[in-house]
């Protein structure tokens, strides 16, 4: 095994990230978002003989943040933190083995588009430095 090239290519993985806004965030939207994450994992599992990856999201509103993580679909989505009801910004990323990034993007768009009031604004956020 050489030590040149990208480790992502070496392992045979892909990743994709999306960001945007969600209007009228509340408990129902939280459940819809969790279901969308599980749906993305399901789509990946169907394509690649199991889900070996990580789906994570951060939602922010009024200086509050909520993170969501999905690693093993049978364990569900773990949630850390709370945000108030109302509008919030979100970022979500998926990385997994044995899929390509275009497939991930399509799966994410398909599953997230089912959430009413969710708008994808940008694919990239770039370098984030502390203030």
């Amino acid at each position: 095994m050489t030590d040149d090239g990208s480790s992502i290519d070496e392992v045979g993985a892909a990743s994709c990230g999306l960001s945007g806004m969600i209007n009228h965030w509340d408990n129902d939207k939280e459940n819809e978002f969790k279901q969308a994450m599980l749906g993305i994992a399901s789509d990946i599992a169907e394509m690649s003989d199991g889900f070996f990856g990580h789906i994570k999201a951060i939602l922010t509103s009024d200086d509050k943040s909520m993170s969501m993580n999905l690693v093993e679909p049978s364990l569900g989505v773990s949630v850390h933190g709370e945000i108030p009801d109302g509008s919030c910004a979100f970022r979500i990323m998926v990385a997994a083995l044995d899929v390509d990034s275009e497939y991930l993007r399509k799966a994410m768009n398909k599953r997230l588009s089912g959430i009413e009031g969710l708008k994808v604004e940008s694919r990239r956020s770039g370098l984030i430095l502390p203030s």
Partner: peptide, 15 residues
């Protein structure tokens, strides 16, 4: 470091 084009964990750690 995030591989997926958008940063997630930095916000959580800053929080």
């Amino acid at each position: 470091n995030e591989v997926g084009e958008v940063g997630i964990d930095g916000t959580r750690i800053n929080a």
